[in-house]
Computed example of a mutant assay.
Amino acid sequence: MAVVDVALAGRSYRVRVGAGLLDVAHCEAHAFIEPYGMRSIPIVADANAKRLLGERLQASFRSAGHAIDWYEVTPGEGSKSWAELERLTDWLLTRGITRSDHVFALGGGVVGDLVGFACAILKRGCGFVQLPTTLLAQVDSSVGGKTAINASAGKNLIGAFHQPSLVLADTSCLATLPPREMRAGLAEVFKYGLLGDAEFFARVDESSEAILACDDGVLETTIAHCVGMKARIVAEDERETKDARALLNLGHTFGHALEAETGFGDRLLHGEAVALGMVLAARFSARRDLISLADAENVADALARAGLPTEISALGLDCDGAALADHMRHDKKAGGGTIPFILLRKLGEAYVARDVSLADVAAFMDEQLQAH
C-alpha cells in the first residue's frame, strides 16, 4: 500500500492507495466511524458502485459492529444538480448528522463532488471520507477539496473548497469498471505527465495496456505518483489563487466546452473530454509556435494508442467554433474579462496563458471541427 500525505495547515489528511482497502475500511477509517456509536453510518453511493462493491464495504463495517444507511445516487453528471443536492442534504439532516460526523462517499467523481459539496454546506461544514471507485476519481477528483454541482450555464460552477478527512483508493475496485470508464480515467493520468513530468507521460504511454488491464502493482505506483503530484500542487495553492493549481486544468477549458455542447451525458465522458481538450491544447500551442506540430501530434498519438478520442470532428457536433468558444465564457476560471488557457511550452511543461483571444480560439475550433 502507498500512502500520500496532503499537507495543509490544520487540515492535512492521507490518501491510501492499494488493493483491498474497502475490505479493511473499518480499520483505516476507525477514527471517523467510532464516534457514531450505535448510530448507522451514512454512505452515499453511486448505484453501480453499491451493486458491485457495497457488500464488501458493508461486511467491513459490520465486522466492527456498525450498521450502514445507504443513499443511492443515479450514475452520471445529471446527479450533480440542485435537486439532488437538496435531496441529499435533507436525507442527511433527517439522520441527525452533526458537524463532527463524517459522511462516506462511495463512487466516482460525481458522487465525490456531490457529497463533498453537501458536507461543505451542511451545518456550515461537516466531515467526509472519499472512497473513490473509478480511475479518474482515484488519481484526481477525490483529492484536493474541489467540490461542486453543475448549472445550466456550465460544469462545476456552483461549489466550494472542502477537503476530505481521508481518501481510500482501493485499486481492486477498478476491475469492476467498463473499459470505456477506465480509458476515460487514463486521460487524467496522462494529464499529470503532460503538465509537469515528460518522463511520466512516456511511462504511462508504455504502461497503458497494463493500467487498462488493472494490474494492481502498476496501478498502485501510477495512482500514487499522480496523487503525489496533485498533493504538492494543492499544498502550494489550495484555492487556486496562483497559477500552480490552475495547471491541473490542462485540457479542461476545451473539454468543458465539448461537454456542454454534448449535454454533459454519456455521449462524451468527462475523461474523454479531457483527452480531446489536451489534444486541442497541444495543437493550439503549436498554432502559437510554442511547441512543434510534431510534439502536438505525439500527444494525440499517445492518447489514441490508449483508445481515447483525439478528433472533435468525430463527435458530429452541429455547431461552429464560435458556439464552442461561447461555452468557455462561462468558465469558472474566467476573471477580469479574460479566460486563462493552460498551454504547453514543451511536453511536460504547461503554463497559464492569459493573452488568448476567444476569436482566435473560435477560428481554431472551426479548423478542428473540419479536420481529419
Rank of each mutant, 00 (worst) to 15 (best):
V6I: 01
R11N: 03
R11M: 10
R16M: 07
G18K: 08
A19P: 14
C27S: 15
E28V: 07
A31P: 13
A31Q: 04
F32S: 09
P35S: 05
P35E: 00
R39E: 08
I41H: 00
V44Q: 12
G54P: 04
L57H: 11
L57F: 10
Q58R: 11
F61H: 09
R62H: 14
A64R: 13
A67L: 15
I68F: 09
D69T: 08
W70V: 06
E72N: 03
G76M: 10
K80V: 09
S81G: 00
W82N: 10
L85R: 15
G96M: 06
I97P: 01
I97E: 04
R99E: 01
F104S: 00
L106G: 00
V111W: 01
D113M: 07
L114V: 04
V115Q: 01
I121R: 15
I121E: 13
L122W: 11
K123Q: 06
K123P: 00
F128G: 06
V129N: 09
T134H: 10
L136G: 10
A137V: 11
Q138R: 09
G144Y: 08
S152D: 09
S152A: 08
K155R: 13
K155G: 07
N156M: 10
G159A: 11
A160S: 05
Q163V: 07
P164H: 03
L168Y: 01
T171F: 03
P178N: 05
R180E: 08
R180Y: 02
E181S: 14
M182E: 14
R183N: 12
A184E: 03
A184K: 08
A187N: 04
E188R: 09
A198I: 08
F201V: 10
R203V: 01
E209V: 13
L212N: 06
L212I: 02
D215L: 08
D216G: 09
G217A: 11
V218F: 05
T221Q: 15
I223D: 04
I223F: 11
H225P: 06
G228C: 06
K230Y: 06
A246Q: 11
N249G: 10
G251W: 01
G251K: 05
F254P: 07
F254D: 07
F254S: 05
A260Q: 13
R267T: 10
L268C: 12
L269R: 14
L269I: 00
G271K: 02
A273Q: 11
V274G: 06
M278D: 04
M278E: 01
M278A: 13
V279I: 02
L280H: 02
A281I: 01
A282K: 04
A282L: 08
R288D: 04
I291T: 02
L293I: 14
L293H: 11
V299D: 03
A300G: 04
A304N: 12
A304Y: 08
E311A: 12
E311D: 15
S313I: 13
L315Y: 11
L315P: 01
L315I: 13
G316E: 03
G316T: 12
G321A: 11
L324I: 05
A325V: 15
H330Y: 08
K333F: 02
A334I: 02
G335A: 14
G336T: 01
G336Q: 07
T338I: 08
F341D: 07
I342Q: 13
I342C: 09
L343Q: 03
L344R: 03
L347D: 02
A350R: 07
A350I: 13
V352C: 07
A353K: 01
A353L: 04
V356D: 07
A362E: 13
A362T: 00
A363H: 08
M365D: 06
D366V: 12
E367C: 14
Q370R: 15
